[in-house]
Design a protein around this nucleic acid. Structure first.
Length: 465
RNA sequence: GUCCCUAUCGUCUAGAGGCCUAGGACAACACCCUUUCACGGUGUGAACCGGGGUUCGAAUCCCCGUGGGGACGCCA
């Protein structure tokens, strides 16, 4: 069997973390089996779909590197096909016109709710042997309903949840085409999955209840039934359902917040799926390991701390040149140019072990390219008279020496000794003088990367102040 | 209300009847490293929702309860 999976978002908002994981799993499954991954935009809700949302989804997919082999397909461009199938169903008697108005439907629902029954269509326009239908009302444009089987059960072996069964008596004759003729979701999905030869439908858990309807539809059409895998949802950090107020943010927000895509991907891969004790792995590994058998059936809570840890891990391992690009991009938005300073990759390499995210990295690197004045408190505490004297002594020695870390470190150490001070008593004031901060990576490395000229410049400015 | 799904450390999870005195990771805590701040290293504490079965034996299978989630649209 050729594996063909799809990701089918509706463009009513950005690509959020839940959608991203669904896309990731569907993508990985196709990759794992040498199949195809298809992107399909479900834009039949004309009211809420926007081109901006389509773009946002595409951007999110691209940032994550979830490349698709076919698509994007747009359902709005497939209207002719849907209408053709609907006519065929009408002709075959597997679908029928229903003239029940929205008002009547509301009344029916209210009545059923009052009786504590499950609200559903009562089949009043469903044709039946020996059943006399009322005359079609003149000015009511009809909807088209699917003639769902009335008895028996629909069942499937869900690849993550196991066997699921629904009694047909629980299902009603749902609408497949609106009064204006446009097809509805459950219908479009079925026709698309059929036409696109989707072998595995990997999607959110919220679609479990749609599955029996879709299977019935597929059968009525004589189409093959794909395999289904329903992923349980992702809860927010606080255990609450994800919503706009609770962390359902765009994946692009993670870019903005300084996350590396591979960290987000790795985190998402482990949220609801596992491969023994493996925690840190590349997408190459993931696509070799991924399977549907090891997906958790229950909902998972998002844990920002673990994501942060992974992000820091990937930053430590990242190529300094790449880090430099990210840092420059971020500094540029703050109006800071790195053109006149030391090589950004060298500075980034100095700081990558201690940055939690790319924004922190950019902030740490910042003082190398723009004078950052130490706070009054820091100056008073560290730039004492004894410290200043030591720095003056050091300054003199710095003009002549070999500009190399080990050498520079020795010099600082020697200066401390000559001034009757301990190493930190010179190193810390030196950090304050150079970077405006009492902490930095090893002072010898900082000096080396910073360069003689700039070091002397900053030292002079600090000693003059 | 009805239907469907689900339940192992605070969190993500390993676990397919004996390998479980329940493993790993994040977080927490302690110690070590150290030129500051970090990184890192080592170690500690921390869980099978409750009740019934089945079985020689259950975290694992079944039933009930409880908790959590989803669905019940001319939304997707």
């Amino acid at each position: 069997m050729i594996v063909r999976t799809r990701f089918a978002p509706s463009p009513t908002g950005f690509l959020h973390i839940g959608g991203a994981r669904t896309a990731l799993f569907a993508w990985a499954y196709a990759r794992r089996h040498g199949g195809q991954f298809i992107l399909r935009i479900e834009d039949t809700d004309v009211e809420r779909s926007t081109p901006e949302a389509v773009q946002a989804i595409l951007d999110g997919m691209q940032w994550l590197g979830l490349n698709f082999d076919e698509g994007p397909f747009y359902q709005m461009q497939r209207m002719d096909r849907y209408k053709q199938v609907i006519s065929a169903m009408l002709a075959a008697g597997t679908a029928y016109y229903c003239y029940t108005s929205r008002e009547e439907l509301d009344a029916l629902r209210a009545d059923q709710e009052a009786k504590k029954e499950k609200p559903r269509y009562d089949g009043r326009w469903r044709p039946g042997v020996g059943k006399i239908l009322p005359p079609a009302p003149a000015n009511v444009p009809p909807v088209v309903r699917f003639r769902n089987p009335t008895d028996g059960v629909v069942a499937w072996d869900d690849q993550v949840k196991g066997r699921i069964e629904f009694a047909n008596s629980e299902l009603d004759d749902f609408i497949i085409a609106r009064a204006d003729g446009t097809p509805t979701y459950n219908f479009c999905v079925v026709v698309d999955d059929w036409d696109m030869a989707i072998s595995h439908v990997i999607r959110g858990d919220d679609h479990v209840n749609n599955t029996p309807r879709q299977i019935n539809l597929l059968r009525a059409l004589g189409a093959p039934v794909p395999r289904y895998a329903h992923l349980s949802m992702i809860l927010g950090d606080d255990g609450q359902k994800l919503s706009k107020r609770h962390g359902a943010v765009s994946v692009m927000q993670y870019d903005e917040d300084g996350y590396l895509p591979e960290a987000v991907l790795n985190y998402l891969a482990r949220l609801g799926w596992s491969h023994g004790d493996e925690e840190v792995f590349s997408m190459e590994q993931f696509t070799q390991w991924f399977d549907l058998d090891h997906i958790t059936a229950s909902a998972a809570q998002f844990n920002t701390e673990k994501l942060n840890w992974l992000n820091a891990h990937y930053i430590k391992a990242a190529d300094p040149e790449r880090l430099a690009l990210e840092v420059k991009r971020r500094l540029a938005t703050q109006g800071v140019s790195t053109a006149d300073g030391p090589d950004v990759a060298l500075v980034a390499a100095l700081y990558r072990d201690r940055a939690g995210n790319l924004n922190e990295l950019a902030d740490a690197v910042h003082p190398f390219y723009a004078v950052v004045h130490a706070s009054e408190e820091v100056r008073v505490q560290h730039l004492t008279d004894t410290a200043r004297n030591a720095l003056k002594l050091l300054r003199g020695r710095l003009t002549e020496c070999v500009w190399q870390a080990t050498e520079l470190g020795q010099l600082v150490k020697q200066t401390a000794a000559d001034s009757g001070l301990k190493m930190p008593q010179v190193a810390i004031p030196l950090r304050v003088a150079l970077l405006g901060l009492p902490q930095s990576p090893a002072i010898d490395a900082v000096l080396e990367v910073f360069g003689r000229e700039r070091v002397l410049e900053r030292l002079d400015a600090a000693l003059a102040g």
